[in-house]
Amino acid sequence: MSAIATPTAGAAAPEVVVDVRGADKVFANGTRALLPVDLAIRAGEFVTLLGPSGCGKSTLLKMIANLLTPSSGQLGWWRGGFDHVGEPGKKLVMVFQDATLMPWARVQRNVRLPLDLAGVPRAGADARVADALALVGLTGFETNYPRQLSGGMQMRVSIARALVTEPNLLLMDEPFGALDEITRNKLDADIIQLWWKKKLTVVFVTHSIYEAIFLSTRIVVMAARPGRVLKEVAIDEPHPRTEAFRVTQRFAAYAKELSELLAEASAKGATDL
């Protein structure tokens, strides 16, 4: 993974964390999952990939995570590359749609896993686990097994496991897609607070327009067949945001703009192909 020199767009622009340059993906079976994408993610952003299912959101996110290589084009990470966890340097971590916890391990051990695998000594690791659990509001659940927790709490454990590595870049693929709306809204509010407090850079995947508006500093709108980026929409709403934002005129205006954009693209796709 080679680092690409960051183009300086403005004097005060934060560093580019991930630079996607003309990266596309054609799978081995011939599926054209993604047309070439250009996208620069800067430190401190909360970028959401929004689009219908099959538009290549997960594909793009996996390329950003370096779990998938582009068919052509290239990606660059911080100068000097990144490391998922472990050794010093920039860290990138991914949260999946399922909590993917080890059912045989208690919450404590599940969260400690990345540190265990990296060989972090137990004492220091346990302190970091406690911090991470506190961040997601799960202090006191250390000795529970995953099956004893609700879906929302399992997702929190999964997020704590990501945070325990103290990542610079947090990638989340529809992390709350399997949860009910009330739980999802609560977790959205928590994740945006975390992002604010910990000065994280987040790339978040969702197919919910409302979730995207509430969370993002910038939304990358995507369309399917073939998967591609339609447009980027900046959400100029100050932080920290609260639930009140959801019922404002501005929120409704963003929702209208985005749903029109998505509807138009899908209508066109249907007649084109």
Binding site: L67, G86, V93, T100, L117, A118
Partner: peptide
Amino acid sequence: GLINLFRMNKATRWQTLTQ
């Protein structure tokens, strides 16, 4: 998903086997 997670965390073959 867990396999992916272990891989992303650069787990060794031995760690993946035992854990």
